[in-house]
């Protein structure tokens, strides 16, 4: 170990401590709701980027993976009354397995088939859930918020803190991956899959690892969602907006670096909350679409990429 305490872990501890202080100090519940949604989007963006940014395969069905996590929670909460941490683990397992399955069926072929399959997957899962009366079917399901919220003053405060921990953990995983042997293998696949295979990279296995991690992380983001909204129906859980944000945030922030989706999510997420409150939520949604198209057409390297390029120019 070169640095016993790296700047990353120092900032992680600072962020968590600040979050904890926030739950003690802030009074307005709105801030927690807004922050929860931004953190949820951040985990989704970080997850999407592991496959999209690091490995170079597009997932359009993020909403499907997210909803699979949410509905796993609903089903297991109803059936067994499991505590939230176990529901999160279950959500990760289910969505991770879905990722592995779709990946196994389509990734041996061309990459675009995977993209198309993920898009259709969201529709199929939605159809399935809409017909599954146990979890409320098309009408939706109410979830009782548990009484216990530890030492926090409300359940939403606790959920916010939980989400913050999950978000820091997913960023840490993504960062670790970015600088690991596995991460370099994924980058080789993204750059040139044939050359990677000939350099000894087991491309299919690495792609499957990548889709599984992505799916599991999205399941984690979705698992606490029912307890946050207390009423879930398929149309809101499978909202296309979830999928668009998961793509737009990394694309705007920059896909090649672990920091990209974090920057994108914080920036776009905060902007969305501001617009939602001050203007309207439809305009907000439209704006994300337009930003996505503009960024990928004009600045495909994203904000982090632009900054890196600028720094390199200055040092050269």
């Amino acid at each position: 170990m070169r640095n016993l305490v790296s700047p990353f872990w120092v900032s992680a501890v600072v962020v968590l401590a600040a979050g904890l202080a926030f739950t003690e100090l802030a009074a307005n519940e709105y801030y927690f709701t807004a922050a929860y949604l931004i953190l949820q989007a951040l985990i989704m963006a970080v997850a999407w980027n592991i496959l999209g940014g690091f490995t170079g395969y597009v997932n359009f069905g993020s909403a499907g993976f997210f909803a699979a996590g949410a509905y796993t929670s609903i089903a297991l909460d109803k059936a067994l009354g499991l505590p939230l941490p176990l529901l999160i683990v279950a959500g990760a397992l289910v969505s991770g397995l879905i990722g592995l399955g779709v990946g196994y069926l389509t990734l041996r072929l061309r990459g675009v088939y995977f993209a198309i399959a993920t898009l259709a997957l969201a529709i199929v899962l939605e159809t399935f859930v809409s017909n599954w009366t146990y979890v409320g079917g098309a009408r939706g399901a109410f979830i009782l918020t548990p009484e216990n919220h530890l030492w926090f003053s409300s359940y939403v405060h606790m959920l916010f803190m939980l989400m913050l921990i999950l978000a820091v953990a997913s960023v840490a995983i993504s960062r670790k991956l970015n600088f690991s042997r596995l991460g370099r293998g994924l980058a080789a696949i993204r750059d040139d899959e044939i050359a990677a295979e000939c350099a000894g990279v087991p491309t299919l296995r690495l792609k499957l690892v990548s889709t599984t991690i992505m799916g599991a992380m999205m399941g984690v983001a979705g698992a606490p969602y029912p307890f946050f909204v207390t009423y879930v129906e398929p149309i809101s859980a499978f909202n296309l907006f979830v999928a668009v944000n998961a793509i737009a945030m990394p694309m705007i922030g920059g896909t090649a670096h672990w920091l990209g989706p974090v920057v994108g999510a914080l920036l776009v997420g905060s902007l969305q909350e501001i617009i939602k409150v001050n203007i309207s939520s439809e305009i907000n949604i439209l704006l994300v679409g337009i930003m996505l198209v503009l960024f990928i057409s004009l600045a495909p390297q994203g904000i982090v990429g632009l900054v890196q390029k600028h720094l390199r120019k200055r040092s050269a």
């Binding site: 980058a187 080789a188 993204r190 750059d191 040139d192 044939i194 050359a195 990677a196 000939c198 090649a256």
Partner: peptide
Amino acid sequence: SFQIPKPFRSM
């Protein structure tokens, strides 16, 4: 080696 070079361009 490949006839048409295939470098890992991001590296």
